[in-house]
Simulated assay, not measured.
Amino acid sequence: MNIEWAKELVDWGVMGALLLMGFVALWAYIERLLFFRRIDLERYRHREALETDLTENIALISSVGSNAPYVGLLGTVIGIIVTFYLLGQTEQMDAGSIMTSLSLALKATALGLMVAIPAMLFYNHVVRRIEVLLNRWEILQKDAAEEV
């Protein structure tokens, strides 16, 4: 049985998925920051419309942050299965090659965490910015009501 496809799945499939997830989270974060910079709070008459515009794309950031560790773990599990399979198929395997295979399997978990941690920091920063902008909008509304 050829198990090379499983190695390729970890190296190209899982790693590629994690890199794509990291790119998506970074893109959504930058897009939100640029949107927040140019938003005109005074043009919004309803809080719901403002909230809808402010929260666009933050689900992407949150989804990446919460799912990247699982994708990395999947890659690690597949890598460990491949290592054990090859160990069972080989009559003699030295400890060095076993440790190398296992350490390469763990790279998927490491990359998953390297994607998830910044994504969650991005998400928390964006959520805080949304709270601040909503508070500023409410202050503008109260000021406008007092002027009338």
Rank of each mutant, 00 (worst) to 15 (best):
M15Y: 11
E48C: 00
E42T: 10
M93W: 00
I117H: 12
R47L: 14
L33V: 15
S66W: 00
F23L: 15
M93K: 01
G79D: 01
L50P: 10
E147Y: 05
R136E: 12
A68K: 05
E131V: 03
E42N: 13
V71G: 00
F36T: 12
D53C: 01
E147L: 15
I78Y: 01
S97V: 05
I98F: 06
F84D: 06
G79M: 13
Y123R: 06
L9R: 03
I98W: 02
N57K: 13
A145P: 05
L74T: 11
M120F: 14
N135W: 00
L50M: 11
N135M: 07
V10H: 08
K142S: 10
T55F: 00
M99D: 04
S66Q: 08
M120R: 09
L106A: 08
K142I: 05
E31C: 03
G88M: 06
E4N: 15
Y123T: 14
E138D: 14
Y85N: 09
F122R: 14
I39T: 07
L111I: 13
A110N: 06
L102T: 00
G16E: 05
K7T: 14
G13I: 01
R136K: 13
E4F: 12
G22M: 05
G112H: 07
V115G: 10
D11Q: 14
G72H: 01
L19A: 11
